[in-house]
Write a protein that binds this DNA or RNA. Structure first.
Lengths: 202, 202
DNA sequence: AGAATAACGATACGTTGCGTATCGTTCAGG
DNA sequence: CCTGAACGATACGCAACGTATCGTTATTCT
């Protein structure tokens, strides 16, 4: 047991980074459909074989890129104001989706994510779960401060906040401007307030 | 000018229906990516050439199916209550997306819709514009009744209502249950009420 | 330093599916 | 019944996927 993966190994990290980088760049302007492994190989200065040694398919490669991006997501600082914190959370997502390449990558992956593939499950477990947890944390903090009423449906709130963002990105085509985060939060927040001054059901 | 397309034509409608039907069925379980024109041809009992005589590419065929489905969308009846009307609107969309095959088709088309393709533009002009118009109609009616305040951002409201639905369908993976429509509307409606009892900015 | 060995590059291959071209066949309308 | 449009069948070129093979680097251990 003195050596496992010894002798001539360990030149992986550089090539891996090159492949991921090339994939990210290409994926930012074409979508998974048009992405070609040959293209990635050429741009990364790497043999096609090398890519298939690390990822079993084109989709797995794309997913790796997505995960790599998501892990750079920042968590929200304490601001002592639920509205500001929620806006910051959404703002972060919007910035990532809009300014960096992740929006394009997401768009390219949309089809795969919608299917019940391994890629979809991985995305849900990594990205969605992470955001859901963040929403839960912020809401709980708001409840503790008395800003938010108890018993709020976290999952629904999460969908209400992030849904419009992705809807714009994917379907409606409206721009992801700066003020969007605040407007979404201001639209959703009244339903989360303690007093229940809302028009009730039936 | 006595005859244009005279002599031996007019057997198109049956084959066209067969092709669209076969596409719809296949698209309901595989996504555009896996959809093959050869498969459609085989299932429709039609030569591949015949398909390419009518649609220039696989994507155009898929779009045709989507449009065909959307045109079966029902408009919302007058209910004299904005909440009920908005719920009915959302309920219709959810039912179409959930129970019929359109949800699967949408999922399959997601990638193409996200790209700036002809397909995306067509979808926006047909589906999104249609729904936006419907939202505007309902909101305006609510304003006339005094249930909704003036100056509401129609586009944002549209995104707030439909965004969560599609977000669930595509990404979060939560089910599209019966009560979803009401819960979304109840969350959004307070922000549309006249009095502006909302916590203001800053 | 030098050998052992994992990772890599280059290339060729089989396969699938797209979109096109060609030609014979069917079926409605005059 | 005869003409011509729409259809079926088939073959083709092409691009990209994913695999296999083999010679070449580069790294680590002795």
């Amino acid at each position: 047991m003195t050596s496992t993966a010894g002798r001539g190994s360990a030149r992986g990290s550089r090539t891996e980074a090159a492949i991921l980088g090339a994939t990210r760049e290409l994926l930012s302007k074409c979508g998974v459909r048009e992405l070609t492994v040959e293209g990635v190989a050429a741009r990364a200065g790497v043999a096609k074989t090398t890519i298939y040694r690390r990822w079993r398919s084109k989709d797995e490669l794309a997913l790796a890129v997505l995960i790599d991006m998501v892990q750079t997501m920042v968590s929200v600082p304490e601001l002592e104001d639920t509205r500001a914190e929620l806006i910051a959370l959404l703002q972060g997502a919007i910035r990532i989706l809009g300014k960096t390449l992740m929006g394009s990558v997401m768009r390219g992956l949309a089809s795969e994510l919608a299917t019940d593939s391994d890629l979809a499950r991985a995305f849900r477990e990594l990205v969605v779960a992470l955001r859901l947890g963040e929403v839960e944390r912020l809401i709980q903090r708001g409840v503790d401060r008395g800003e938010i009423r108890q018993g709020v449906d976290i999952s629904l709130t999460h969908d209400l906040l992030f849904g419009p963002v992705y809807y714009r990105l994917f379907l409606s085509g409206e721009p992801l401007d700066r003020k969007l985060a605040a407007r979404i939060v201001d639209a959703v927040l009244p339903a989360l307030r303690p007093v229940t001054r809302t028009a009730d059901a039936r």
